[in-house]
């Protein structure tokens, strides 16, 4: 049996997906990127091989993607994460026309036709709308990143943030805490502001359903709900949404390896 690997080295986390010849996911792994990007790529590849009980020699092709893709020493190809997210989203949700990717340090909107990128915009000038913003907010409130989405769903009177700046929002949050605002209302305001900002970004490539939500922030149920409310449309989210870039990369790896040489 031949296998194909996709390694998505993001700013915050590195993800690896291994698929078989039928394009079925055989293994997945996720590690924190940390300061040593090349080592993160190696570690997460090794972890996926181990998780799937797959020998390194049976990997016919490996594709690197994400911001650290050129540090994937074992990669046969590098492809941008934009192309990979579009590809991955179209495998899991073939009707995808718009991909909303909210990662650790950037947010992107990608317009997709049949798995290919038509247009994209990204918010790389500001950390609002990224996992980084949400983790700062969680930390300021003394909560874990994985619990804030759930708590935000209980908001009755969401606060209005005066800024979506990741640096300034800390004092905004502290001021609300000092005023005795409920944690869920503060989180409701945070999720609402970030969702509105992200949708403004998506509008620039066109609001065409179906929407597929990818990247680490897609694990946040509060953000999913808030975006759906503001879009008036459901979002496709899978348990593997976090791995979408790696899935796309693994699919490219399988196509690359299965195309006869010279073609």
């Amino acid at each position: 049996m031949k296998y194909f690997a996709g390694v998505d080295v993001g700013s915050t986390q590195a993800k690896c997906i291994i698929v078989d010849e039928q394009r079925t996911i055989s293994a997945r792994a996720l590690v924190e990127t940390g300061a040593n990007v090349a080592r993160a790529a190696d570690r997460c590849f090794a972890a996926a091989l181990e998780a799937g009980g797959i020998a390194r020699e049976s990997i016919a092709c490996a594709v690197g993607t994400g911001y650290g893709r050129f540090k994937v020493s074992f990669g046969d190809l590098q492809i941008t994460e934009i192309t990979c997210h579009a590809k991955g989203a179209s495998l899991l949700f073939p009707q995808t026309r718009t991909v909303i990717d909210m990662g650790g340090q950037d947010a992107k909107a990608i317009s997709v036709r049949d798995g290919e990128v038509v247009d994209f915009v990204m918010n790389d000038k500001c950390a609002a709308g990224t996992g980084r913003f949400l983790s700062t907010a969680a930390e300021t409130l003394g909560l874990g990143l994985e619990e804030i989405g759930e708590i935000s769903l209980r908001a009755r009177n969401p606060v209005r943030l005066s800024t979506v700046c990741t640096v300034f929002v800390e004092s905004d949050i502290m001021a609300y805490v000092a005023q005795g605002k409920k944690i869920e209302d503060i989180l409701g305001g945070i999720h609402s502001a970030i969702a509105a900002r992200t949708i403004a970004l998506v509008r620039r490539v066109g609001l065409e359903p179906q929407f597929t939500f990818t990247g680490g922030v897609s694990l946040n149920v509060g953000m999913v709900k808030m975006m759906e409310e503001k879009l008036g449309q459901p979002l496709n989210v899978s348990a593997d949404s976090h791995y979408m870039g790696a899935i796309g990369a693994a699919l490219f790896a399988s196509e690359h390896a299965l195309v006869p040489a010279g073609n």
């Binding site: 980084r132 990741t166 640096v167």
Partner: peptide
């Protein structure tokens, strides 16, 4: 441009 991203 962003102070947070610049820190990374």
């Amino acid at each position: 441009v962003c102070a947070v991203l610049a820190e990374s």
